[in-house]
Write a protein that binds this DNA or RNA. Structure first.
Lengths: 173, 173
DNA sequence: TAAGTAGCGTCAGTGACTGACGTCAAGTAG
DNA sequence: CTACTTGACGTCAGTCACTGACGCTACTTA
C-alpha cells in the first residue's frame, strides 16, 4: 500500500514491493498469485459474511429483502475498515488494471450470493437476477457512501433499495 | 480466433498470432493495445447502437422501459453476429483474464447507458442504478439466450424484465 | 519533384511471472 | 539424541507481454 500510494500501482515493481517487505521477489509470488491480488485479500471475509447473512436472514422474506438484510449486516465490515478501505479504493479507482480485478471480484461475490439465495429455495433463474440487481443497489450505495460520508452506509442502502422500487413501479411492463 | 480455439488463449503467444496474420509481432501491438483486446473489437458498435437507441426511444417511457426498448433493438446486433459471437463467448468463458476484460467492458457500457439516460432527463442517481439494473437483466437474458437458443433474444429480454418486476413487487420495502 | 506521412520491420530493452533446485530451521518419529 | 520430513525461503534461468527508438518504403500532397 505504501508503494502503491507513493508511486502509483503501475510504477511499482514487484521487486520493490518484495524489497520493502524484506523478502525475495520469488517469495512475493509465493504469497500472492499476482501483483494485483495484494489489494484483494479481505475478499474471503466479505464473502463468508455475505453468505452467512443470506443464510441466516429471517424466513419468509422476499429475495430482495433478504439481500437488503444481508448487505446491511455485512456492510459493517466495510464501515469498520474504513481507514483501510479508503486509500485502497482510491488506488483502485485510478488504475484500470485494478478496476478490472475489482469487477471480477464483485462478479464472483454476486455469484456466491446467488448460490446462497438458491440454497434458501429461491428459484434458479430468479436467484441470479436478484443477486445481480441487489448487488447493483449495494454497489450504488457503497459509492454514495464514499462520496457522501455524512450519511452512514445503512441509510444509503435503504435509499438505493427504495430507488429500485421506484424504478420498477414506474415501469409498465 | 483460430489460434485461441486451437490452443486456448493462454497457450497462444502474440508472436504466433502475428505470424498467422502474416505480420510482425510489433505490428500486432500497433493494431491492438494488448492481447486481450482482439476479442473486444466490436464493442464500439454495440456502444453506439445502445446510446442511439436510448436517445431515440419514445418519449414518456419510464427509465427501465427505455432500456428494454434499447436492448431489444441493439440485441439484433448480437443475433446477427451469432456465428461469430458463439465461439468468442466460449473462449471468454473459459479464460479468467478474458472474463475480467469482459466485465470491464460491460461496466464501461453500463456507464455509457447511464449517461444516455441522463441526457434524456432521468435523474442522476436513478440513471446509474437503472443502467446497472437494466444491464443485469440484459446480461441475464443474453446468458439464457446462449443456453436456450430455442427462444430468441427478444423473448428472453421480455422474460428477464418481467422477472425484475416480480422481484420488486414481492419485496416489502 | 521534394517533402511529408503512414504503416511496417528490427532491435534492444523492462518487468511480471514460472519452474527447478538448493538451503536451512523447526518439528517428529524412532 | 539422531535421522527424516516438511515448509518457508533464496537463487537462477527462462518465457512472454509489451514498449521505445530507429530506419525503410510506398504513397500523398503541395
Amino acid at each position: 500500500m505504501e508503494l502503491y500510494q507513493e508511486r502509483g500501482f503501475d510504477q511499482t515493481t514487484t521487486a520493490e514491493i518484495a524489497a520493502r517487505a524484506g523478502v525475495n521477489e520469488r517469495t512475493f509470488f509465493r504469497h500472492f498469485p499476482d501483483k494485483r491480488e495484494v489489494l484483494f485479500d479481505g475478499e474471503a471475509d466479505l464473502r463468508a459474511a455475505l453468505m452467512h447473512e443470506v443464510a441466516e436472514a429471517p424466513e419468509g422474506l422476499a429475495p430482495l429483502d433478504v439481500l437488503l438484510h444481508a448487505f446491511r449486516k455485512a456492510g459493517r465490515i466495510l464501515e469498520e475498515n474504513r481507514p483501510f478501505s479508503e486509500p485502497r479504493l482510491a488506488v483502485i479507482a485510478v488504475t484500470p488494471a485494478l478496476r478490472e480485478r475489482d469487477l471480477a471480484k464483485a462478479a464472483s461475490l454476486t455469484e456466491a450470493v446467488a448460490e446462497a439465495l438458491r440454497r434458501r429455495g429461491v428459484e434458479d433463474r430468479l436467484a441470479g437476477l436478484a443477486a445481480q440487481t441487489g448487488w447493483a443497489a449495494f454497489h450504488h450505495a457503497a459509492q454514495a457512501w464514499i462520496d457522501t460520508p455524512s450519511q452512514n452506509l445503512d441509510a444509503h442502502l435503504l435509499h438505493a433499495f427504495d430507488d429500485l422500487h421506484t424504478l420498477a413501479a414506474a415501469s409498465n411492463r
